[in-house]
């Protein structure tokens, strides 16, 4: 798409090769990947919808045991981290590298906060005897969970799988932003070339997008 218009390019020698870097294709590829993410989570949302239609009462009872305040705080944290990524992109486009780096660190801090809150939330459920995988020191399936009606068991199964898969995406997101931060300091990402940062931002927004739907379905619709 764009040949390098910087004068710096020509210092690279007399090589006849022109380095083609198609930023638009890079972005398009990222969008394609995001579609597969949508379909991956879409299948889980479909499972949720089907089981909710089969066990409406049990889903309502089980969902009322989730902490709504915790869910709301996590929603705000994730929305804010989406904002900081956008600001990081705008900042680097305006040539403000330090602000961009600061915003990326803030994004990672938000991601950590989200995960810590999530950990406490899961821990509370584990302590009350609700878990999916047998704990190694006990070695048995959760007696509390097995005693619940089948609809509630399905609810907790979906809850752990969907929020767990989402949390995994948040962890991967932190890893991506560490790489991006290194790229930023090495000037691989700079004012004229922000496509790496933009693509990681797109990924982060999809993670946010999925939480936007997870949150009401698990914490609000009771």
């Amino acid at each position: 798409m764009s040949n390098n218009q910087d004068g710096a390019f020509f210092y690279l020698g007399t090589s006849p090769h022109v380095e083609h870097e198609d930023k638009e294709a890079a972005k398009f590829g990222m969008w394609l990947f995001l579609y597969t993410e949508l379909l991956l989570f879409g299948a889980l949302f479909l499972a949720y919808a089907v089981y909710r239609s089969i066990y409406p009462k049990e889903f309502e009872i089980a969902a009322s045991h989730l902490d709504r305040t915790v869910g709301t705080v996590n929603t705000i944290v994730l929305l804010f981290s989406s904002l900081t990524v956008v600001i990081a992109i705008v900042a680097i486009q305006k040539g403000n590298k330090m602000l961009s780096a600061f915003m990326l660190i803030l994004t990672m801090a938000c991601a950590f906060t989200f995960l810590i809150i999530k950990t406490f939330e899961w821990k509370a459920k584990f302590d009350s005897g609700i878990f999916l995988v047998p704990q190694s020191n006990i070695g048995e399936a959760s007696a509390v969970l097995s005693a619940l009606p089948q609809g509630q068991q399905v609810f907790y199964g979906l809850y752990f799988v969907m929020t767990g898969l989402h949390a995994l995406h948040v962890i991967i997101g932190i890893g991506i932003f560490i790489v991006i931060l290194v790229f930023l300091f090495r000037d691989i990402i700079h004012k004229k070339d922000v496509v790496f940062l933009e693509n990681s931002g797109l990924y982060w927004h999809i993670v946010d997008l999925i939480w936007i739907f997870l949150f009401p379905l698990y914490y609000l619709v009771v």
Partner: peptide, 17 residues
């Protein structure tokens, strides 16, 4: 809840993304 979530998702896709 789903209507509001859809509006939020649209805002994210349209402006943030």
């Amino acid at each position: 809840a789903m209507t509001v979530a859809t509006i939020k998702a649209t805002l994210v896709v349209y402006f943030f993304m």
